[in-house]
């Protein structure tokens, strides 16, 4: 008994440094943020009141939700097609596909955002090509608006959509697809009745991951939005760093954290969350 208890204490001591580190540098600041949102500029709920009264606060929230929903939908669509292609590819080909999906992850988000700016701006490659081929007469406004933000965010998110979906698709026994065809199902029916339902857990997992990730996006919207379209993260930084309105900034940060936790809580009932964060099965 005593020995077992001692061993128990030993194990707890092992994680003590990590626990202290997390408390000091992670939990404490978050709690402080939470506190500030209730105490600045005066103690009370007036910061949260703004959620219901301030049009600009509501606009930021709606813009963020809209962009995140569109981004998630597009990233899932593109990601699903990619994951499907990769899952059904031969082993050797599959490795190259996965590499191609992963390479963008190693490139700085800043570099990618500026790359999109050069492509999409008025004198950029896309507008020039369209004008030279005579499809348009005037350059299109492709960047410094919501469109630009969505392009940049989808580009960033596709790998995060592909990986959980690919994991889910790889678990599908290919014999099931052959069996369905052998039983008389067309290729399309095999997809809609067998493949899609069986890959649904990965689809939901990818959706949750991409949506949560998008909510807190900062650099891509800041650069591709050109300061005209504000999402939550940029708005928070604006409040705290430029306008020194700590109370309002931390209120929004708290709302963001709560929104993410709520999303996770809802989906934890539908899907195994360990799958979302890559330690499933």
């Amino acid at each position: 008994m005593a020995a077992a208890a001692q061993r128990q204490t030993g194990w707890w001591l092992l994680i003590l440094p990590a626990f202290l580190l997390m408390t000091a540098f992670y939990v404490a600041p978050i709690l402080q943020v939470l506190t500030i949102s209730f105490t600045e500029p005066q103690p009370g709920l007036q910061n949260y009141e703004r959620l219901f009264t301030s049009e600009s606060v509501q606009r930021v929230i709606w813009t963020t939700l809209r962009i995140c929903t569109i981004t998630t939908a597009l990233a899932l669509l593109l990601g699903y097609a990619l994951a499907y292609r990769i899952a059904l590819a031969e082993d050797r080909v599959r490795r190259w596909w996965i590499l191609a999906v992963l390479v963008p992850l190693w490139i700085s988000v800043l570099v990618r955002a500026f790359a999109w700016v050069t492509l999409l701006r008025r004198q950029g490659l896309v507008n020039q090509t369209l004008m030279e081929t005579g499809i348009i007469a005037e350059p299109l406004q492709l960047v410094w608006n919501e469109f630009g933000i969505v392009v940049g965010m989808v580009h960033y998110m596709v790998p995060y959509a592909v990986l959980p979906m690919l994991a889910s698709m790889r678990e599908i026994d290919p014999r099931l697809l052959a069996a369905a065809r052998g039983l008389g199902a067309s290729r399309f029916t095999v997809f809609s009745r067998i493949f899609l339902p069986l890959s649904a857990p990965g689809l939901i997992a990818a959706g949750v991951l991409v949506f949560i990730f998008s909510l807190g996006f900062y650099i891509t919207p800041a650069i591709l939005g050109g300061g005209k379209t504000l999402m939550v993260a940029e708005w928070i930084s604006l409040q705290i760093l430029d306008l020194i309105r700590w109370g309002l900034g931390t209120m929004m940060a708290t709302v963001l954290v709560v929104a993410i936790l709520t999303t996770l809580a809802i989906f934890s009932r539908v899907v195994d969350l360990r799958r979302v964060f890559g330690s499933g099965a």
């Binding site: 026994d173 099931l176 065809r181 052998g182 008389g184 199902a185 069986l198």
Partner: peptide
């Protein structure tokens, strides 16, 4: 003829029952 047009019943190795 593709497999779905042949109208053959097939029992696969490991049965390949649809788990969902």
């Amino acid at each position: 003829l593709p497999p779905e047009k042949r109208d053959f019943g097939m029992v696969f190795q490991g049965y390949a029952l649809f788990p969902h």
